[in-house]
Design a binder for these strands. Structure first.
Lengths: 346, 346
DNA sequence: TTGTATGCGTTATCAC
DNA sequence: GTGATAACGCATACAA
């Protein structure tokens, strides 16, 4: 049997007031008499009443629904983001609608707009690399829809963005490698069409150059951030002679691929080869040997983005500006890196 | 500027028909003249019109929103499920609202009901171990809400369930171990309050007993399906003397923990110790050595559950019954298991 | 085959 | 401080 849930009318009737008054109570209006408020709240509790969000949305064009738009193969990253977003959502009374999409699709922008319009989302959080698409951001702005992007570069106003400084972090990794004595270093980049990829590569190069080290062209491979391409790139890199003494991968997944190949080829890590990743997702600490990497505070970024989002929805842009828009990734040293053992002049 | 999206009234006006007719076209009614239909569809396309789901929901008590309820620490599992569900959702015009919850919470049932009522979800898919809670299932049934549970045991009608036969699969693993010559086998179970845990343990025991092998009490440890507890259990198991020659863990995460500890203790895998997991999530094939495990077709289960769900929403129970309610996990042999090397009489 | 009128549960506009 | 009443956009009895 279908239990029809109670409505604002039931509450109004039982409390002996008009539904307008109940509405006031629900929305915390100031202009309600104390005795009236208490009485209404009592009935609400008794009935376990909660407002129908559809009706509410129809009347006020609010849905209490947030969207998450992404095209990312990394399950661990996505999980981290979702948990961060959901913590804030549930605390503030929003629900989360997930929406994977295809970065390269020609209809991406229209797809996302339809998604938002159909479900009348109050706002969307966009994850990299989709977040780097200016066409999407502009469409969102034109449509007057609140949005927040997670990115590696500050490509938008503070109210629309939460960025991690990947460039500096990669430079820190370079410094660390240099101080371990590595000179012949290889790099597995992400897709060059992604800003997160170029930022990390640039930062790494910059950091190395401060120590007079250059990244040779033949020591740079491009993967697509998956474990599989990490393996491919590693195979290619580790078939070169002489071997590089260290490999820095654009993310942990690919670094894990390097570990796998090195193991297959009998190349001892970190004795013969140092390997580092980027992200510090769950994988990094669980792989053998545990991965030296850059810890990106993904969950925190997700929380900031969600908070910021709800600020612009419920308060105003100024409040949203207050929420931090930048986080700093940090170096985490584990077992996969060590001082270069024998440094033969090349 | 906020682009107010067009409504059914706009379409009706421009097409020169009543909105009732437009409604018919939208919902694919048979009784609409061909010329009228074409005209209306043309306008719809021009306006890029799509019906407001809130208004539609208010009028017809449908939201085109599906919910996913879970309390599971395994990001890889969740990702797999979400992808499976979303493939069907997007194809059939539904959106997915994710809703993590706490299995042990006293207010779990009420929380879930509120979630469903607030957002007027058309149905929910429930993941283990929450799916094993009869109290929730009954509440859902009482509320008249369509639901489908993913489980390891057929604890509900066919229209409400998609089950994987974990018991048989675990028995198969036992057979495999026995045929490799293992006699002294250890088992790391999941929480005994979960049916998925007891099913796998029972199946494993049953399978072993067919070969006259018993699981000794001191060789059974209980973890909570996380990597961390896998490590704890492994430490305890691998400090015993003599060592077991094989360890079967309730899932891949914990098996990965065993691999880690064995590596730290210098116990060669699979030479000295065979290790196997359950699930075959991404981790299993990426860990070193790659894990022998039971492949559970998670994505497929998610697709079946979603299809079944939408069947009961849009068609009827009979249609839902047709959708397969059972899948068979299969053994996947990789590098972490081998014939027992030296079999000393204990 | 097509149109009219009403209701879904809430918020918002006004008056009292 | 409170209450009628009109939207909001759509679906659906009921008529024509």
């Amino acid at each position: 049997m279908i239990q029809k849930s109670s409505t604002i009318n039931d509450v109004a009737r039982l409390a002996g007031v008009s539904k307008r008054t109940v509405s006031r109570v629900i929305n915390g209006s100031m202009s309600v008499g104390d005795s009236t408020r208490v009485r209404v709240e009592k009935i609400i509790a008794e009935l376990n009443y909660s407002p129908n969000t559809q009706a509410r949305g129809l009347a006020s064009s609010r849905s209490y629904l947030l969207g998450l738009i992404y095209d990312n193969p990394d399950a661990l990253y996505l999980d981290d983001v979702q948990r961060g977003v959901l913590e804030i959502c549930s605390r503030l009374g929003y629900e989360l609608v997930v929406h994977p999409c295809r970065y390269r699709s020609e209809t991406l922008v229209q797809d996302c707009l339809n998604f938002i319009n159909r479900s009348k989302l109050d706002g969307v959080i966009v994850l990299p690399p989709v977040s780097e698409l200016e066409s999407l951001a502009e469409a969102l702005k034109d449509a007057g829809r609140p949005y927040v992007r997670l990115t590696s570069v500050a490509i938008d106003e503070a109210k629309h963005i939460v960025v991690s400084d990947d460039r500096s972090a990669a430079a820190e990794m370079a410094r660390y490698f240099a101080q371990l004595g590595h000179q012949d270093i290889a790099f597995i980049s992400g897709p060059q069409r992604y800003k997160s990829s170029t930022e990390r590569m640039e930062g790494f190069k910059l950091g190395l150059s401060a120590y007079g080290i250059a990244l040779k062209a033949e020591r740079i491979m491009e993967g697509n951030n998956t474990y599989e391409t990490g393996i491919e790139c590693a195979r290619s890199l580790l078939s070169q002679s002489p071997l590089p003494t260290a490999i820095f991968a654009n993310n942990d997944q690919m670094a894990a691929g390097v570990l796998k190949v090195a193991h297959q080829m009998g190349i001892a890590i970190p004795e013969l080869l140092s390997v580092a990743g980027f992200d510090d997702n769950l994988l990094a600490s669980r792989v053998i040997p545990a991965l030296t990497t850059i810890r990106r505070p993904v969950r925190q970024m997700a929380q900031l983005a969600t908070t910021k989002m709800i600020m612009v929805i419920e308060q105003n842009d100024k409040a949203a500006q207050q929420v931090a828009a930048k986080v700093a990734p940090t170096l985490v040293v584990r077992e996969s890196t060590a001082k270069v053992s024998v440094s033969l002049p090349s």
